[in-house]
Every structure is written in structure tokens, then in C-alpha cells.
Design a protein around this nucleic acid. Structure first.
Length: 469
DNA sequence: TCCACTCCCACTTTTGAACAGC
DNA sequence: AGCTGTTCAAAAGTGGGAGTGG
């Protein structure tokens, strides 16, 4: 079920060589909370609103973790990865490919505010990424994850064993994805069924529910059918989805019929009832089926253990990913063809970097001294070519997008979100010159300067392309 | 004309300060 | 003084409609 693969191609990370503890991470398990709700959205084709000031996700990402070393500290991160290389449009009740994807916006990774925290902390309760926000503002200064509207993404969850955010250069990490969490970024909802689901389940949108006799009750009455069947439980939701005209859902994705036909093959795993996913899912399901271990839990089959980060192995994938032809069928195939495994694995760089520690910086979000003492592996700082350093912006001081650490929590909390370095080829201003990052880091940051001409380009892709918020 | 996007509105929940009681 | 619980206003989070601009 859980696939673990030390696929590091560069110098051996100290954390990996530090001791057997590092390998225990192979037992990590991550499950998605509210999978039924996610599936309900996914069956229709999840859409997530993106706005300039940033918008939360709904459903928001909430996970459960097990198999961590209770004493060891971990940081949890989320980033968003393009599902394919296309731009979409909503046309007559269905999504259609509208051309090639726009160049990647600055890549950012959301760091869970509790990070770093002992494994026991992460395992004792579910971990919510409620405050993660999505934006379409490429100049965003708040550290929100920048996405393109009308593009499809899926979240990736990274668990990095790291004593703190700065002292680790190399760390073993594992990445998880959940097929049902993929979504289309939009500036306004396209599918009224999605709107309805959001209104029905997001407490902030109660005012738009029909049942409530509020002033605005009528406003949300665009698709009154099925509203009386609305219920809060997932079971009812599924029923609702099934009751509603199925041909609507299907017709919404006519172009993907071929893949949808495979859906019933999915098996029920781990008590999670297998549902027919939307054609978005069909894309991914196809990948999963062909490239994941049979019988894998659909919620964690993408799990892999990796090291942080390897630009060399990274770039080829990226180029491959975005150089493909804009055809839906080929998109799925080509995006996965590199590894012959899950689309996830082909996307993930073999290694990524975790920045050095700045001793002068306060460690916020740190949950205090490890109850187990300092014996768990703490990788020693190392310098390798291509290592992406990071820097922390001074509190309240704006920094170049993707190059600095910002704090969404105020000056007293200098860490909250990592954001990737700006892409060299990204057309929107201000695209930092490829070497700007290096300059920034060597002059402002704490860490050793390093020279790697492709840093900006490398960090265009999400995983552990760091600048921190 | 179309469509993606932004702004603003009315609504809701969440948050946190202020206060009271023990 | 310190803790806990309650109240209430402000802040933040919602989707929709209208307007804008390419």
C-alpha cells in the first residue's frame, strides 16, 4: 500500500545517514479527512475560487497522520501541482480544453503553522490546512499559493522530518496526494452543482441556502432542484449526488467518456466506498490504476519517500510535463510517462532542499523542546551545488515574491508559509532574473551563498522551491 | 458579443477583547 | 491574582449580481 522509495540521486543526506530512525518514516500513513465530501465534489468536478486577496479552499485540506516517530520533529507542507498542461473553459455544462496551460506562476508551498512539531503532535489529532489560501495575484505579498484560473491542480502534502525549519539542509520526506482533492481554479464558479455543494456545506455560505428564509435566500436559487434533499451528512450527500440527474454529471465531461468507463474497476479500500470519479478523476484514476501498486489505498497510494531536492532530476520532468501536446488523452499519458508510475512520482523531484538554520532567528511555531531529547537525527548543514537556499524577510519588510520568508501571522511569527522562487520564464511582473535568487540569498539570507544558475528555473516547480513566508 | 475577472453587498462564522464570577 | 465562562463587537469568510475590460 504505502510506497516508500529513497530515490535520491545526489549526495547522501545527513538525515538519511544519521540513523535508523530516518527509515522508520516508511511507516508513515496519511489519510484524508472528509473523503466522502471530497468525493462528492470530485464527482462533479471540484472548483476552487481564487481571488486577489486570497481565498480559502472548501473543502479544506484536513489529514490524519500515523507512523511518525513521536519524538522526532516534522514539518508539514502543502503545495499545488498542475494536473496537466492545459487551460480549460466551461462550455455548455462541461469543461473543455481551451489551450495550453499558461506558464507556471511563482510556486509556493504552504507550511503548516504548527511546524515544526513532534510526531506525537501531528498524530494526536487531525491536521487542518484551513488557513491555506489560493490567489491569482502573481504579485501576492501574503504568501498565498498562486494559481492560474481555469487550470487544474491537486494538492500535495509533504512531511519532512526536520528538527526545525532552519537547521535542516537535507531531510527525508514523504509526499502524499489524494486523487479526490484535485480541483479547477476559477475566479467564479462555473458549475452550478459545485456552487450548490459549497453553499450546502460551507458554514460561511449559510446565508445562501434556500432553506433559510434569509433575505438572500433567493439569490442562490439558481439550481433549485435537489435543494430539499440537501443534507449535511456525507451519506446523504452521496445520495443527493446520485439522485440528481446523473446524465448531467456525465454529460459535463463527455470528452472523457473513454476513461470514465474504467471507473467501476476501482475497488473499495480501507472502508472508503469507491465512487465513480469525475472525468477529472478519470484522468488521475487512470494514472493510478496503471502506475500504482495494486490494492493501494486510494488515499495514500501516491505516498513516496524522497529527499530534498535534486534539481538535476527535477528539471527534465518539468520540461517534459509542459512540452507535451495539448490533448486531454495525451496529457494524462505523457505526464506520467516519464516514470511509468503515478503521475505524482513523475512530478516530484527526487530531492529538494531544506534551508539552513539561522541561529539569530526565533523559531516560531515550534512546539517547544522535544520531549525525547536531542538525539533524533538533525542533519548537519551541507552545501551542495544546486541547493536552494532560502532567506527570511525581516518582519514587515516586503520582499521579492518567492524569494523571501514572509509571515502571515505577524512579526512574532516569522514562519508560516514557504513560497517558491519566482520562475524565470514567468511572464508576469516582476519576474526575478534567474540569478536574483542567488543574489538575494547570498546578501540577505543567513545562509551560505551558493551558485546555481538554474535556481529560479528549478524552483519554478512547487516542491520545496523555497522562499518562506 | 462573449467571457474572465473584480468589486461590492448581505449574510455567516470566527476571533478576541472585555467583563463578571468564582 | 489567577482562572474560567459569557457577552459582544470586529474581523474574516461566503456566493451572487453587477460592472469592467480585453
Amino acid at each position: 500500500p504505502t510506497h516508500s522509495r529513497p530515490n535520491f540521486s545526489g549526495p547522501p543526506p545527513s538525515s538519511m545517514a544519521a540513523g535508523p530512525d530516518a527509515y522508520l518514516q516508511g511507516n508513515m500513513r496519511m489519510t484524508l479527512e472528509d473523503p466522502e465530501l471530497w468525493k462528492n465534489f470530485h464527482e462533479i468536478g471540484t472548483e476552487m475560487i481564487i481571488t486577489k486577496p486570497g481565498r480559502r479552499m472548501f473543502p479544506h485540506c484536513k489529514i490524519n497522520l500515523s507512523g511518525l516517530i513521536p519524538c522526532a520533529k516534522y514539518i508539514l507542507l502543502v503545495d499545488m501541482v498542475p494536473v496537466d498542461g492545459f487551460r480549460y473553459k466551461w462550455n455548455k455544462e462541461k469543461w473543455e480544453v481551451a489551450g495550453k496551460a499558461e506558464p507556471q506562476p511563482p510556486c509556493r508551498t504552504y507550511l503548516h503553522p504548527d511546524s515544526p512539531a513532534p510526531g506525537s503532535h501531528w498524530m494526536k489529532q487531525s491536521v487542518s490546512f484551513l488557513k491555506l489560501k489560493l490567489t491569482n495575484n502573481t504579485l501576492d505579498q501574503h504568501g498565498h499559493i498562486i494559481l492560474h484560473s481555469m487550470h487544474r491542480y491537486h494538492p500535495r502534502f509533504h512531511i519532512v522530518q526536520a528538527d526545525d525549519l532552519f537547521s535542516v539542509r537535507w531531510s527525508v520526506f514523504q509526499t502524499f496526494t489524494f486523487p479526490e482533492t484535485s480541483f479547477t481554479a476559477v475566479t467564479a464558479y462555473q458549475n452550478t452543482k459545485i456552487t450548490k455543494l459549497k453553499i450546502d456545506h460551507n458554514p460561511f455560505a449559510k446565508g445562501f441556502r434556500d432553506e433559510g428564509t434569509t433575505k438572500k435566500g433567493g439569490r442562490s436559487n439558481k439550481s433549485p432542484a435537489c435543494l430539499e434533499k440537501r443534507a449535511k451528512t456525507s451519506d446523504v450527500l452521496i445520495r443527493d449526488s446520485e439522485d440528481s440527474p446523473t446524465d448531467f454529471c456525465r454529460s459535463s465531461y463527455e470528452g472523457y467518456d473513454g476513461e470514465e468507463g474504467d471507473m467501476p474497476k476501482r475497488k473499495e479500500v480501507d472502508g472508503v466506498k469507491e465512487e465513480r470519479y469525475s472525468p477529472w478523476a478519470a484522468d488521475r484514476e487512470h494514472s493510478v490504476r496503471t502506475e500504482s501498486p495494486a490494492g493501494a489505498d486510494p488515499r495514500d497510494i501516491y505516498n513516496t519517500e524522497q529527499l530534498v531536492p535534486a534539481p538535476a532530476s527535477y528539471q527534465p520532468y518539468r520540461f517534459h510535463e509542459y512540452g507535451k501536446s495539448p490533448s486531454p488523452s495525451s496529457s494524462v499519458g505523457s505526464s506520467n510517462s516519464g516514470s511509468g508510475r503515478s503521475s505524482f512520482e513523475s512530478r516530484v523531484p527526487d530531492v529538494a532542499t531544506v534551508p539552513d538554520h539561522d541561529p539569530s532567528k526565533p523559531r516560531t511555531h515550534e512546539v517547544g523542546p522535544s520531549p525525547c531529547g536531542p538525539h533524533h537525527p538533525v542533519p548537519a548543514p551541507q552545501d551542495y551545488p544546486g541547493v536552494l537556499n532560502m532567506t527570511m524577510a525581516q518582519a514587515g519588510k516586503p520582499a521579492v515574491i518567492g524569494h523571501h520568508i514572509y509571515s502571515p501571522y505577524g512579526a512574532e511569527q516569522p514562519l508560516g508559509q514557504w513560497s517558491g522562487a519566482g520562475p524565470a520564464q514567468y511572464p508576469h511582473p516582476p519576474p526575478p532574473p534567474p540569478h536574483h535568487l542567488t543574489t538575494d540569498y547570498s546578501t540577505q539570507a543567513v545562509h551560505h551563498g551558493y551558485h546555481h544558475g538554474n535556481v529560479a528555473e528549478w524552483s519554478q516547480y512547487p516542491l520545496f522551491s523555497y522562499s518562506c513566508w
